[in-house]
């Protein structure tokens, strides 16, 4: 199992009900982790609609997870 720090923005924050949380996962990649969270947190957006960053750098979805990673999921927003 891997323990990661998650940060949520915009719609994801709203749906998760929190800006951040520590999460223990059996997922091996960012994509698998997000699919797990879609079920666990009820996220409506598909991974392809989002950007993901790990440790303050944008990342590809196939990146493997490491203990202690800080992972940020970012949806596009349009308000103005």
């Amino acid at each position: 199992m891997t323990v990661v720090n998650l940060q949520y923005y915009a719609q994801l924050r709203e749906q998760a009900g929190t800006s951040s949380e520590q999460f223990t996962t059996g997922a091996s990649s960012l994509r698998d982790l997000y699919e797990e969270l879609r079920v666990a947190r009820g996220f409506s957006l598909a991974a392809d609609a989002l950007k993901v960053a790990v440790n303050a750098q944008f990342s590809a979805w196939d990146r493997p997870l490491r203990d202690g990673d800080t992972i940020v999921f970012i949806p596009p927003v349009a308000g103005g």
């Binding site: 719609q11 609609a49 349009a78 308000g79």
Partner: peptide, 15 residues
């Protein structure tokens, strides 16, 4: 470069 395609309006929310 960041968001190649325009997302569906339902995905982005609005004021």
């Amino acid at each position: 470069c960041l968001w190649p395609q325009e997302p569906a309006p339902e995905a982005v929310g609005s004021c």
